[in-house]
Amino acid sequence: MCECHETAAKVEESFEYDRLESLLQGFLGKKGAMVPILQAIQSEFGYLPRPAMEYTAKRLRIPVSRIFGVATFYAQFHLHPRGKYIVRVCRGTACHVRGVSKVADRMQELLGVGVGQTTEDLKFTYEEVACIGACGLAPVMMINDKTYGKLTTDKVKGILKDY
């Protein structure tokens, strides 16, 4: 079993329903709260643990399938634990035109994971996003909240070393 599954098992076995309940309190009775609730759960637990979705369904008196439907529709939500550092390589048009493909290939090679995957040690999750909006600095990527611009295949290794 890899660490990501172990972590998930740990979180889900001894799931802290109290933490979830106090979080839900702020939303109960409000209309259109499903997306904000899922956003709050994710920022609290790092991802959307299964028990959290099941419990939320009960509290909102809706089928869990509806919550699952919303959670899988949006790119922002994750059903598995993620790495400590989220690497987001921009695949926007400007980055595409300025050759981000090679940078993306190099990054995946260095991390040894594909798109949407997490390294076994739970350190990095590799993602590709449509546009970060820093097109002036293309090609760009973000590691957590820090943006790195004007990337080349040579630069990425050095950047990863800082983590």
Binding site: R91, G92, T93, A94, H96, A130, C131, G133, A134, C135
Partner: peptide
């Protein structure tokens, strides 16, 4: 919801 890749005027 400015989603067009390569656009950042609204932002």
């Amino acid at each position: 919801d400015e989603g067009d890749p390569g656009a950042f005027m609204d932002r």
